[in-house]
Design a binder for these strands. Structure first.
Lengths: 337, 337
DNA sequence: CTGTTAGCGCCTTCAT
DNA sequence: ATGAAGGCGCTAACAG
């Protein structure tokens, strides 16, 4: 790989002129510009990004921390991030944390060692290690779809989870359901709270009794959905409708309900959350909440770049609108069930 | 962010000693080592990766080119890549190309500008622009699951696609099927050829006639699966079994067949390819080919690192074993159909 | 408009 | 075992 110097020799100019030809072409006469470009061609010159980054202190890269790469919902977000980043001339460093704190720490530390200028976090954990915590103050961080817990309030891009589950709950209540089950994900997270509160709010409005032992689950996976459905249907008072806190859980739940010989939605209604692509093609198509994941990813990039460029943020929370998709996995309560 | 110099001052040593403390601790006396570490702590020092990369000429990063981030199969590969890279101290730059040549060119050029040391490609296109082609000769490139077309033979990690579709075809023929349809992805790629050849090989063995107008499709998406199924079922001689060249296509095909009032597998058998997670939880669970995507991703990292480190490769093609999963979307031919 | 010069932060001989 | 000094490739004043 050839360097500036070779281009200098070939074009008969100084390094400054070469640099300028690339960064401020208008400050170079057309003649020399052409000569320099030609020299670049001939020598196969490529500017060394790293070298210029050392100078400017900017790596033009963003790190994305994702708890689980195989969750299609995250992928939609990441795709949005990726596209927005490309448009802005940034590249994306991907870190699959598997929810393990050590991995989070290690990946997050990339932004401390100048590999990246900012960090986008798709989980609720504080990603830095204790010893790095004080360094993290100056680092541009944004969280998407979750809120990072801890003292510092990081900017966040999120859905109105409370209103979303309210609308799901109303939808099911309107169908006559009174006995519910919930299969949740990780319970420590903020979105868990918001979603639960939304449901319980409707129950309170409608004076529907609900016992917390009808909440099962613990992770956002198909397997948890299966296990959760089995558990709920073994309760003394079986639910006629089940809230699943994401679509993967709903996929597992529906699979298991069918295996138990139950029909969806004739016997049990099931609703999901996220609207991953495949839910529209399931049997039955899943009633769920559509999150504008792609747009949320784009917004995350926008916000983190504002922080990087010291543009003051309008607000610390960006709340995106949801959309309830009433498909065929939910229906009227079955009086004979 | 503090630099070496501050550590020097605090510890009362030279920059060389600080550098050595990190890279060759054994060459520094225990006393000073401790002093230096303490100084690092106090000043919150983080080595600037970029700066050292300029010196060493290694960025310790790999670029991954993906045609479509939302395809779950690619995600399994990427997860494998990510993990292996992390273990080796490399970070992963992700580039979603959307199959667009310009994007490919731009992302691939990162490896020319020293942002990355190597490139892993999940598509069959030659990723560099024409003007970069001659520079690409010296760049470590590996392709996974596809073979990069062009003059140069890049190392490739792949499945025995021929044998895999052979086994699917035998499976269906054993069930008595004689009338087939195929919904394919992009037809220019090598894997398309191999998979088609595998199927036709079995047809030849069994003297089963097959007309190429029973091949439809054009992309690896759910929508193409839907459209393909509709098209095939409108043919004068309807197939009793359909090969889908990936699982997304199969998902769309099954959805559409049901919509047409047909039962799977009682009326029509459907088989997929890849074994993405959700296929095990569909109704009916999909018969498909399991690819060890995770391991293939890991292998890709291993191979590209060998090239980077000038370790001679044992072979230019690594062929991974497949596994046919006979689930419930395929069954005996229906004589009344 | 162009060249000279002085670094960016780190690594690495070469001395001591 | 440690320090001084030069340089990786590029950028950014400052001159001219």
């Amino acid at each position: 790989m050839s360097t500036v110097k070779e281009v200098c020799k070939l074009a008969g100019v100084s390094t400054a002129t070469v640099s300028r030809t690339l960064k401020n072409p208008e400050r170079v006469s057309e003649k020399t510009r052409e000569r320099v470009f030609k020299a670049m061609q001939e020598s196969g010159y490529r500017p060394n990004m790293l070298a210029s980054s050392v100078k400017t202190g900017k790596s033009n890269a963003l790190v994305v921390l994702v708890p689980n790469l195989t969750n299609p919902f995250f992928l939609k977000i990441i795709q949005g991030i990726e596209q927005a980043a490309q448009e802005k001339g940034y590249s994306v460093l991907l870190g699959d944390t598997q929810g393990e704190p050590e991995r989070e720490n290690e990946i997050a530390s990339m932004v401390l060692s100048n590999r990246a200028d900012g960090l986008i976090h798709l989980d609720h954990s504080f990603p830095f290690s204790k010893s790095d915590a004080h360094l993290a103050d100056r680092v541009p961080v944004v969280s998407v779809c979750e809120r990072i817990k801890g003292d510092k309030e990081f900017p966040v891009i999120e859905l109105d989870n409370y209103a979303a589950t309210r609308s799901l709950a109303k939808h099911l209540v309107n169908y006559g359901h009174r006995k519910f089950g919930i299969i949740a994900g990780q319970e420590e997270s903020r979105i868990h709270h918001d979603r639960l509160a939304g449901i319980k709010g409707v129950f309170a409005d409608e004076e529907i009794p609900f016992d917390d032992n009808m909440i099962v689950g613990g992770a956002y996976s198909i397997e948890v959905g299966q296990e959760g459905a089995r558990e709920l249907m073994a309760k003394p008072e079986r639910p006629t409708a089940i809230f699943c806190f994401n679509d993967d859980i709903a996929i597992g739940a529906i699979f298991e309900l069918k295996k138990l010989g139950l029909r969806v939605p004739e016997d049990v209604s099931v609703v999901g959350f996220d609207n991953i692509k495949v839910t529209a093609f399931m049997d039955p198509p899943l009633t769920t909440i559509d999150q504008p994941a792609h747009e949320m990813g784009r917004k995350a990039v926008e916000v983190v770049l504002q922080i990087i460029n010291n543009v003051p943020l309008r607000r610390n929370r960006e709340i995106f609108p949801f959309n309830i998709l009433e498909r065929e996995s939910s229906g009227p309560v079955n009086p004979n069930f």
